[in-house]
Protein backbone atom coordinates (compact mmCIF):
# COMPACT_ATOMS: atom_id res chain seq x y z
CA UNK A 1 0.00 0.00 0.00
CA UNK A 2 1.38 3.36 -0.98
CA UNK A 3 1.53 6.35 1.32
CA UNK A 4 0.79 8.65 -1.63
CA UNK A 5 -2.25 10.79 -0.61
CA UNK A 6 -4.29 9.99 -3.73
CA UNK A 7 -3.68 6.31 -3.44
CA UNK A 8 -4.50 6.29 0.26
CA UNK A 9 -7.79 8.12 -0.31
CA UNK A 10 -8.62 5.62 -2.99
CA UNK A 11 -7.74 2.77 -0.65
CA UNK A 12 -10.00 4.14 2.08
CA UNK A 13 -12.91 4.25 -0.36
CA UNK A 14 -12.35 0.64 -1.36
CA UNK A 15 -14.27 -2.22 0.14
CA UNK A 16 -11.68 -4.86 0.82
CA UNK A 17 -12.84 -8.41 0.30
CA UNK A 18 -10.46 -11.26 1.03
CA UNK A 19 -10.20 -13.97 -1.62
CA UNK A 20 -12.85 -16.73 -1.38
CA UNK A 21 -11.83 -19.54 0.95
CA UNK A 22 -13.52 -22.44 2.71
CA UNK A 23 -10.90 -22.14 5.46
CA UNK A 24 -13.05 -20.18 7.95
CA UNK A 25 -15.86 -22.76 7.65
CA UNK A 26 -13.39 -25.58 8.38
CA UNK A 27 -11.96 -23.62 11.33
CA UNK A 28 -15.46 -23.15 12.76
CA UNK A 29 -16.14 -26.87 12.33
CA UNK A 30 -12.80 -27.75 13.96
CA UNK A 31 -13.44 -25.48 16.96
CA UNK A 32 -16.92 -26.98 17.41
CA UNK A 33 -15.63 -30.57 17.31
CA UNK A 34 -12.77 -29.55 19.64
CA UNK A 35 -15.28 -28.11 22.12
CA UNK A 36 -17.27 -31.36 22.08
CA UNK A 37 -13.93 -33.10 22.65
CA UNK A 38 -13.86 -31.74 26.19
CA UNK A 39 -16.90 -33.94 26.86
CA UNK A 40 -15.95 -36.82 24.56
CA UNK A 41 -12.11 -36.95 24.60
CA UNK A 42 -12.01 -39.10 21.43
CA UNK A 43 -13.13 -36.03 19.48
CA UNK A 44 -10.20 -33.90 20.69
CA UNK A 45 -7.63 -35.09 18.11
CA UNK A 46 -10.26 -35.02 15.34
CA UNK A 47 -11.16 -31.41 16.19
CA UNK A 48 -7.49 -30.44 16.43
CA UNK A 49 -6.72 -31.92 12.99
CA UNK A 50 -9.75 -30.25 11.34
CA UNK A 51 -8.80 -26.95 13.02
CA UNK A 52 -5.20 -27.17 11.78
CA UNK A 53 -6.37 -27.94 8.22
CA UNK A 54 -8.64 -24.87 8.38
CA UNK A 55 -5.85 -22.66 9.69
CA UNK A 56 -3.55 -23.97 6.97
CA UNK A 57 -6.08 -23.11 4.24
CA UNK A 58 -6.77 -19.69 5.74
CA UNK A 59 -3.13 -18.75 6.23
CA UNK A 60 -1.99 -20.01 2.88
CA UNK A 61 -1.82 -16.65 1.11
CA UNK A 62 1.35 -15.95 -0.84
CA UNK A 63 1.56 -12.36 0.42
CA UNK A 64 -0.19 -10.72 3.36
CA UNK A 65 -2.18 -7.91 1.79
CA UNK A 66 -1.23 -4.40 2.77
CA UNK A 67 -4.61 -2.90 3.64
CA UNK A 68 -4.58 0.21 5.82
CA UNK A 69 -7.41 1.30 8.09
CA UNK A 70 -8.76 4.86 8.31
CA UNK A 71 -6.36 5.26 11.27
CA UNK A 72 -3.50 4.83 8.80
CA UNK A 73 -2.30 1.59 10.37
CA UNK A 74 -2.02 -1.88 8.92
CA UNK A 75 -5.35 -3.67 9.36
CA UNK A 76 -3.91 -7.04 10.32
CA UNK A 77 -1.44 -5.47 12.74
CA UNK A 78 -4.34 -3.56 14.28
CA UNK A 79 -6.28 -6.80 14.61
CA UNK A 80 -3.37 -8.48 16.38
CA UNK A 81 -2.90 -5.57 18.80
CA UNK A 82 -6.61 -5.61 19.69
CA UNK A 83 -6.37 -9.37 20.23
CA UNK A 84 -3.33 -8.91 22.48
CA UNK A 85 -5.21 -6.27 24.49
CA UNK A 86 -7.97 -8.83 25.09
CA UNK A 87 -5.30 -11.36 26.08
CA UNK A 88 -4.05 -8.93 28.74
CA UNK A 89 -7.50 -9.05 30.36
CA UNK A 90 -7.58 -12.84 30.06
CA UNK A 91 -4.27 -13.29 31.86
CA UNK A 92 -5.09 -10.56 34.38
CA UNK A 93 -8.07 -12.63 35.55
CA UNK A 94 -5.93 -15.76 35.86
CA UNK A 95 -3.10 -13.95 37.67
CA UNK A 96 -5.50 -12.28 40.12
CA UNK A 97 -7.12 -15.64 40.85
CA UNK A 98 -3.70 -17.19 41.43
CA UNK A 99 -2.69 -14.39 43.82
CA UNK A 100 -5.93 -14.76 45.76
CA UNK A 101 -5.64 -18.54 46.08
CA UNK A 102 -1.92 -18.31 46.86
CA UNK A 103 -2.78 -16.33 49.98
CA UNK A 104 -5.26 -18.97 51.08
CA UNK A 105 -3.08 -21.96 50.23
CA UNK A 106 -0.45 -21.22 52.86
CA UNK A 107 3.27 -21.91 52.48
CA UNK A 108 3.66 -24.12 49.41
CA UNK A 109 5.55 -21.72 47.17
CA UNK A 110 8.85 -23.06 48.54
CA UNK A 111 8.20 -26.20 46.47
CA UNK A 112 8.60 -24.23 43.25
CA UNK A 113 11.86 -24.83 41.41
CA UNK A 114 13.18 -21.29 40.84
CA UNK A 115 16.56 -22.29 39.29
CA UNK A 116 14.81 -24.56 36.75
CA UNK A 117 12.33 -21.89 35.72
CA UNK A 118 15.12 -19.30 35.56
CA UNK A 119 16.52 -21.48 32.79
CA UNK A 120 13.04 -21.51 31.25
CA UNK A 121 12.96 -17.72 31.44
CA UNK A 122 16.28 -17.46 29.63
CA UNK A 123 15.00 -19.88 26.96
CA UNK A 124 11.97 -17.69 26.28
CA UNK A 125 14.00 -14.45 26.32
CA UNK A 126 16.42 -16.01 23.84
CA UNK A 127 13.50 -17.16 21.68
CA UNK A 128 12.25 -13.58 21.55
CA UNK A 129 15.66 -12.49 20.32
CA UNK A 130 15.72 -15.24 17.69
CA UNK A 131 12.16 -14.39 16.57
CA UNK A 132 12.99 -10.74 16.01
CA UNK A 133 16.23 -11.77 14.28
CA UNK A 134 14.18 -14.01 11.96
CA UNK A 135 11.98 -11.04 11.02
CA UNK A 136 15.04 -8.89 10.43
CA UNK A 137 16.60 -11.55 8.20
CA UNK A 138 13.41 -11.87 6.12
CA UNK A 139 13.17 -8.11 5.68
CA UNK A 140 16.71 -8.18 4.30
CA UNK A 141 15.78 -11.09 1.99
CA UNK A 142 18.19 -13.43 3.80
CA UNK A 143 15.92 -16.45 3.49
CA UNK A 144 18.36 -19.06 4.79
CA UNK A 145 19.07 -16.97 7.90
CA UNK A 146 15.33 -16.45 8.33
CA UNK A 147 14.73 -20.20 8.22
CA UNK A 148 17.51 -20.90 10.71
CA UNK A 149 16.34 -18.24 13.18
CA UNK A 150 12.80 -19.57 12.88
CA UNK A 151 13.93 -23.13 13.61
CA UNK A 152 15.96 -21.83 16.58
CA UNK A 153 12.85 -20.07 17.92
CA UNK A 154 10.83 -23.27 17.58
CA UNK A 155 13.47 -25.30 19.41
CA UNK A 156 13.75 -22.74 22.22
CA UNK A 157 9.95 -22.65 22.59
CA UNK A 158 9.88 -26.45 22.69
CA UNK A 159 12.65 -26.54 25.30
CA UNK A 160 10.72 -24.06 27.44
CA UNK A 161 7.70 -26.36 27.31
CA UNK A 162 9.95 -29.28 28.30
CA UNK A 163 11.29 -27.33 31.29
CA UNK A 164 7.74 -26.40 32.28
CA UNK A 165 6.67 -30.06 32.12
CA UNK A 166 9.63 -31.01 34.33
CA UNK A 167 8.48 -28.42 36.87
CA UNK A 168 4.94 -29.75 36.72
CA UNK A 169 6.21 -33.30 37.27
CA UNK A 170 8.17 -32.20 40.35
CA UNK A 171 5.15 -30.42 41.83
CA UNK A 172 2.86 -33.37 41.20
CA UNK A 173 5.50 -35.53 42.90
CA UNK A 174 5.17 -33.28 45.95
CA UNK A 175 1.40 -33.77 45.97
CA UNK A 176 0.53 -30.42 44.37
CA UNK A 177 -2.16 -31.48 41.89
CA UNK A 178 -5.17 -29.78 40.32
CA UNK A 179 -7.14 -31.07 43.27
CA UNK A 180 -5.38 -28.64 45.61
CA UNK A 181 -6.13 -24.94 45.98
CA UNK A 182 -2.64 -23.80 45.01
CA UNK A 183 -2.29 -26.46 42.31
CA UNK A 184 -5.53 -25.59 40.53
CA UNK A 185 -4.58 -21.92 40.31
CA UNK A 186 -0.95 -22.66 39.41
CA UNK A 187 -1.63 -25.26 36.71
CA UNK A 188 -4.43 -23.18 35.16
CA UNK A 189 -2.21 -20.10 34.97
CA UNK A 190 0.99 -21.74 33.73
CA UNK A 191 -1.00 -24.22 31.63
CA UNK A 192 -2.72 -21.48 29.64
CA UNK A 193 0.64 -19.78 29.15
CA UNK A 194 2.13 -23.07 27.98
CA UNK A 195 -0.80 -23.52 25.60
CA UNK A 196 0.00 -20.12 24.11
CA UNK A 197 3.62 -21.20 23.63
CA UNK A 198 2.41 -24.40 21.94
CA UNK A 199 0.13 -22.41 19.61
CA UNK A 200 3.10 -20.20 18.75
CA UNK A 201 5.17 -23.27 17.89
CA UNK A 202 2.38 -24.60 15.64
CA UNK A 203 2.23 -21.16 13.98
CA UNK A 204 6.00 -21.40 13.34
CA UNK A 205 5.53 -24.85 11.78
CA UNK A 206 3.17 -23.22 9.26
CA UNK A 207 5.68 -20.43 8.60
CA UNK A 208 8.48 -22.95 8.19
CA UNK A 209 6.40 -25.06 5.79
CA UNK A 210 5.77 -21.98 3.65
CA UNK A 211 9.48 -21.15 3.77
CA UNK A 212 10.47 -24.64 2.64
CA UNK A 213 7.98 -24.37 -0.25
CA UNK A 214 9.71 -21.17 -1.35
CA UNK A 215 6.73 -18.96 -0.59
CA UNK A 216 8.45 -16.54 1.79
CA UNK A 217 9.73 -13.23 0.45
CA UNK A 218 10.43 -9.85 2.05
CA UNK A 219 6.84 -8.96 1.07
CA UNK A 220 5.68 -11.67 3.53
CA UNK A 221 7.42 -9.86 6.39
CA UNK A 222 4.22 -8.32 7.72
CA UNK A 223 2.81 -11.79 8.39
CA UNK A 224 5.99 -12.76 10.24
CA UNK A 225 5.90 -9.49 12.19
CA UNK A 226 2.33 -10.28 13.27
CA UNK A 227 3.53 -13.69 14.47
CA UNK A 228 6.37 -11.90 16.26
CA UNK A 229 3.90 -9.67 18.10
CA UNK A 230 2.16 -12.79 19.41
CA UNK A 231 5.41 -14.51 20.39
CA UNK A 232 6.85 -11.47 22.19
CA UNK A 233 3.55 -11.02 24.01
CA UNK A 234 3.81 -14.60 25.26
CA UNK A 235 7.31 -13.70 26.47
CA UNK A 236 5.93 -10.60 28.26
CA UNK A 237 3.29 -12.73 29.97
CA UNK A 238 6.04 -15.06 31.18
CA UNK A 239 8.07 -12.10 32.50
CA UNK A 240 5.06 -11.20 34.64
CA UNK A 241 4.34 -14.82 35.66
CA UNK A 242 7.95 -15.53 36.59
CA UNK A 243 8.02 -12.53 38.91
CA UNK A 244 4.61 -13.13 40.47
CA UNK A 245 4.67 -16.91 40.74
CA UNK A 246 8.35 -17.61 41.41
CA UNK A 247 10.03 -14.52 42.81
CA UNK A 248 7.49 -12.59 44.90
Amino acid sequence: MSSHPDVQTHAHDEIHLPPPSWGPIVIALGVTVLAFGFVLPLLLPVGAIVLLVGIWKTSNFSVIDEIRTSMGVHSRMLGMWVFLASEIMFFAGLIATFLGYKQRAGEVAYLLNVPLMTIGTFLLLTSSFSAVSALSALQQNKLKAFRNWLIATMILGGLFLGVELLEWGELIGHGITTGTLFGSAFFTLTGFHGLHVLIGIVWMVFLLARTLRGRMTPASATGVEIFGLYWHFVDIVWIVLFTIVYLL
Binding site: M89, A92, G93, I95, A96, T97, L99, G100, Y101, Q103, R104
Partner: peptide, 11 residues
Protein backbone atom coordinates in the same frame (compact mmCIF):
# COMPACT_ATOMS: atom_id res chain seq x y z
CA UNK B 1 -9.86 -6.98 38.19
CA UNK B 2 -6.74 -7.52 40.29
CA UNK B 3 -8.07 -5.59 43.27
CA UNK B 4 -11.53 -7.16 43.06
CA UNK B 5 -10.36 -10.77 42.71
CA UNK B 6 -7.48 -10.61 45.17
CA UNK B 7 -9.75 -9.05 47.81
CA UNK B 8 -12.56 -11.49 47.01
CA UNK B 9 -10.36 -14.57 47.25
CA UNK B 10 -8.27 -13.47 50.22
CA UNK B 11 -8.96 -15.49 53.36
Amino acid sequence: VMVALVVALAP
